[in-house]
Design a protein around this nucleic acid. Structure first.
Length: 463
DNA sequence: GCATGATCATGC
DNA sequence: GCATGATCATGC
């Protein structure tokens, strides 16, 4: 089947005919020459679709207006599907993209409608045994498109500000600017600064793809609680809508709001619960449609009477055995701070011990912080675990010898388990104590660093 | 007073 | 049963 012009219907039929087949089967049925043996995407594009490769600005199938993508997903133990990766779209030409409006942008010109072919990634299988499981013609909903349009503007405005080298996936909600290139030396010019910037491509975030799979493709585990309505996005950005909704309660007493909104919880996370109620949702904020797609997590922050943050911020525990296997570039920690956007809700202590709502803002970590201090603390932690240097001797007792807060500027390591008996195995026996396991720990973000972020985001001093 | 070590309540 | 989000408690 050699043809250059396809209709939408033909594209879909061809994609459907691949469902259930392994890569090997597709390769042999289309007699694909070994020279395109490379990627699974290429095998399908060149083999099953054989469209003339183009570097046009338009979509792969110009006449049908359809872009073709092949992407992996994984099945979780509970049967749910998750996207394995972000969906990488076209490379951003920094010099050119700033000349466009959204309607004429390279993203929108090429990706209005995307035929997505999903294959199941399984670690233990050889790639040629991966199987195509789903195909889906994706068109953006009006609501998603409103958010994506704002994302595109966020990205382009950063380039216009001469900050292409500071782009990060956490800057945006659904449409990201992900790095694309062999390594960090894959640099290119930007129009308003002499600093070379890493090559990046527009992409749909992994979490957006996971939600798309579950809601529209696998049809498993669909739970939708929407935080805001489409109509609200017509004249306000998502971030501002959420912020304004919370700030409508500015200076209101937490104790009082807890009573009004029926939050009776002794949980340490009752401020999170309260914020959810204030935003008018029933379940958990982190489970809402928008937060899940955009990979946003809520974090509550308490300021004491002196305007200092009471506590550093905890994150999920790491496993000692996992961290020693990781490399920084692809590590869990780097990925977390590169891809997650945080909603900080700030509560201020009052003289009577109560708290009031003080502020709300979205935040994501700057790449230079991430690849600076965060990386070195991570590396130090990994090295100590690998070499069995978890404990040090202090007087008659032992202390952990990971870098404490006092020796770091952004993150530090601390216990984070149920109690001192809640441990994880160590890959290397501890030299000093001979222990084969240690208390579960996690990386905490330093409270003073967070405080700086709050003031950076806000020119006005905190009341 | 704060850094460090430790623990709590909840939900899946 | 455990991960998670957050905060408590103690000793320096």
């Amino acid at each position: 089947m050699k043809k250059d012009v396809w209709t939408v219907q033909e594209i879909r039929q061809q994609a459907q005919s691949l469902v259930g087949k392994t890569i090997k089967e597709i390769q042999s049925s289309y007699a694909i020459s070994s020279k395109v043996k490379g990627s699974i995407g290429q095998i399908i594009e060149d083999g099953a679709f054989s469209y003339s490769p183009n570097s046009n600005k338009g979509p792969d199938f110009e006449e049908a207006g359809v872009e073709l993508k092949v992407t992996p997903f994984v099945r979780l133990k509970n049967g749910q599907c998750s996207a394995k990766e972000r969906l990488v779209l076209n490379i951003i030409n920094y010099i050119e993209e700033v000349r466009y409006e959204f309607e004429t942008s390279s993203f929108w010109t090429k990706n209005k409608s995307i035929e997505i072919i999903f294959y199941e990634y399984q670690k233990e299988l050889h790639p040629e045994d991966y199987r195509i499981e789903f195909e889906h013609l994706h068109e953006f909903s009006t609501k998603d498109l409103l958010i994506i349009r704002a994302d595109w503007e966020t990205i382009v405005n950063k380039i216009r500000d001469g900050l292409a080298h500071e782009l990060s996936e956490g800057d945006t909600l659904y449409l990201g600017a992900c790095t694309k290139g062999a390594n960090r030396q894959s640099l290119r010019q930007q129009p308003y600064s002499d600093v070379p910037a890493m090559q990046r491509a527009f992409s749909l975030k992994t979490t957006y793809m996971t939600k798309l799979l579950r809601n529209e493709v696998c049809r498993k585990g669909i739970e939708k609680e929407e935080l805001i309505k489409e109509s609200e996005l017509l004249n306000k950005r998502f971030e501002d809508i959420i912020r304004d909704k919370i700030l409508a309660f500015k200076n209101r007493s937490v104790k009082e709001l807890m009573t009004i909104y029926g939050v009776q919880s002794d949980s340490k996370s009752n401020l999170v619960l309260l914020t959810g109620k204030l935003l008018g949702i029933e379940g958990r904020i982190n489970n809402t449609e928008e937060f899940q797609k955009a990979n946003i997590e809520i974090k509550t922050i308490r300021l004491n009477l002196k305007n200092k943050i009471k506590e550093s911020m905890s994150f999920p525990t790491f496993k000692y055995e996992d961290i020693v296997q990781e490399e920084w570039e692809t590590s869990t920690l780097r990925q977390r701070f590169e891809e997650t956007k945080y909603l900080f809700v700030v509560f201020k202590e009052q003289l009577n011990g109560d708290y009031v709502i003080a502020d709300a803002m979205f935040w994501n970590m700057k790449p230079s912080d991430l690849d600076g201090d965060v990386q070195s603390v991570w590396q130090d932690t990994k090295n100590k675990i690998m070499s069995g240097q978890v404990y040090k001797s202090v007087g008659r007792t032992y202390h952990y010898q990971f870098l404490p807060k006092s020796q770091t500027s952004i993150i530090h390591v601390r216990p984070h388990g149920k109690n001192r008996n809640d441990t994880n195995p160590l890959p290397t026996i501890d030299l000093l104590t001979g222990k084969e396991e240690a208390v579960k720990m996690c990386f905490f973000v330093n409270n003073d660093y967070i405080l700086k972020q709050l003031t950076l985001n806000k020119p006005k001093p905190l009341s």
